[in-house]
Design a protein around this nucleic acid. Structure first.
Length: 477
DNA sequence: ATGTGC
């Protein structure tokens, strides 16, 4: 991205001023000069288009890990006011609705896992269904899927997948309201029928990690993290169901936009007013998919506990937190000192509530919300904490991952999956995957530097670093 | 992301 002509308004934020009559608000690009310079021009183009959509409140913005996406850039954040004709867009949520990361802390340390690493990797790979179209042990009827779409992780726990305590540490306490299963097609439900409790493919993973470095001692203590401790991160979403909802509502929202005379700067930005029938319909379906994703990560948590209990007697795996990073959520935020209810699109961006936020569980009230930046295969991840400053800057949002730096196509030409896996094994990182091509697409070199993303996220005032997690075992989709 | 591509 060419930064010439942009205003540097803060040490880690560049502004594209609003063009009168075209954009409702300016664009704010959070990042450092090197991170922004290496981003595709498309990021700038796409987020400028978002600034042209009706009912936008405040700046349209991108997080430091942003990259080119469908319509909205991944790493894009934008707030819309329904009373001002604000819109909702399927491209602004992403196809993998409520894709996110569940992080579990354990009572194990590095030495426990090192001696059992091969067995752990093999058992996890055997027990955690992963890969395109891979089905799990659960086979559900369409009626049961309706219950999942309403109940989320609560449903999963009622079925025996996990413990009540998990719910306190999941966004929305494991279940988002206003899900409308009737707005989800039978086709979408059928696609999900065998896919509950599965990881999926692409950048999804289950990783066993060791806490390698603590940045913030107090927050780490509150989060229950200490150096040398083993944690587990599960990255996945709403699988076939979310994807099918995205595909279908893209068409319905495009029709609504045309019917209502909404000018779309890009047809990929198909959207409808939140207060229109189509907007409401998508919202109900998207919330249903959020619950499916929350239930999915809950089931995977349970499967992970079973594997750990089999290998390590008396192992305890507690939910540290579960964050979603592809959502549109109704939240109350301050605008010019006044509280307003806004629909916040976060596509490839994590909600990052600061200390004292009423939605936080009691345990994290003072420390702020745990924010998880998932790294690329084999490079490590970060746990951060939400800070108050981010409320004014970015509607309490932060980066979600390393963010791609290169297309999948280019990555395949540059790396071979087998060699990558061998190289990582030589560094003591065990990868298990059904797709060598997938591994090549996910080469660490195809992603931005996660250390830099986490550092810049902190310096930009979006969240503060708490701990760095180094990978040991990675089950790839 | 995705029963990866019409």
């Amino acid at each position: 991205m060419n930064l010439a002509g942009l205003n540097k308004i803060e040490p880690y934020c560049w502004e594209i001023p609003a063009v009168k009559g075209e954009m409702h608000s300016p664009v704010h690009l959070y990042g450092s000069e090197p991170l922004l310079a290496s981003m595709d021009e498309k990021v700038r183009e796409q987020i400028t288009n978002v600034a042209k959509l009706p009912g936008l409140v405040g700046a349209a913005m991108t997080m430091p890990d942003a990259h080119w996406g469908y319509g909205f850039p991944i790493g894009g954040v934008a707030a819309f006011d329904p009373d001002l004709g604000g819109i909702i867009s399927a491209g602004g949520v992403g196809f993998d609705i409520s894709c996110g990361i569940r992080c579990l802390r354990t009572n194990l340390n590095l030495a426990d896992v090192t001696s059992q690493a091969e067995r752990l990797a093999n058992t996890l790979f055997q027990r955690i269904p992963a890969g395109v179209g891979e089905e799990g042990a659960l086979k559900l009827s369409i009626l049961q899927l309706d219950d999942i779409m309403l109940g989320g992780a609560e449903w999963a726990i009622r079925q025996g997948y996990g413990v009540q305590e998990d719910l306190s540490f999941i966004e929305e306490h494991g279940r988002i309201h206003n899900a409308i299963p009737a707005n989800v097609s039978d086709h979408a439900k059928k696609r999900q029928h065998g896919e509950m409790g599965t990881l999926g493919s692409g950048n999804h993973y289950l990783e066993v990690q060791v806490v390698d470095r603590i940045y913030d001692v107090d927050a780490a203590r509150t989060f229950g993290l200490k150096e040398g401790q083993i944690v587990i991160s599960i990255h996945c979403g709403s699988r076939g169901l979310g994807h099918q909802i995205g595909t279908e509502y893209l068409v319905s929202l495009a029709k609504a936009a045309s019917r209502l005379g909404i000018e779309l700067p890009d047809r990929e930005l198909a959207c409808a007013p939140i207060n229109s029938p189509e907007g409401q319909e998508y919202l109900g379906a998207m919330n249903a998919a959020i619950n499916v994703a929350l239930a999915n990560r809950q089931i995977l948590t349970h499967l992970t506990r079973e594997v750990f209990n089999q290998i390590f007697h008396d192992s305890i795996l507690e939910t540290l937190f579960d964050v979603s990073h592809n959502t549109c959520k109704l939240e109350k935020h301050k605008v010019d000192g006044k509280g307003r209810w806004l629909y916040i699109h976060r596509k490839g961006a994590t909600r990052a509530f600061g200390p004292g936020h009423p939605a936080l569980p009691e345990r994290y009230k003072e420390a702020g919300q745990p924010v998880i930046i998932g790294g690329s295969m084999g490079t490590g991840s970060y746990v951060l904490a939400g800070i108050s400053e981010s409320e004014n800057k970015a509607w309490s949002s932060a980066s979600h991952g390393a963010g791609r730096a290169m297309s999948r196509h280019t990555a395949i030409k540059q790396w071979r999956g087998k060699e990558l896996i061998e190289e990582l094994a030589s560094k003591g990182i065990l990868i298990r995957t059904k797709s060598l091509r997938g591994a090549a697409e996910e080469a660490p070199g195809a992603y931005k530097d996660v250390d830099l993303v986490a550092e810049v996220t902190e310096k930009a005032g979006l969240a503060k670093r708490v701990a760095f997690l180094r990978p040991k075992v990675c089950i790839k989709g």
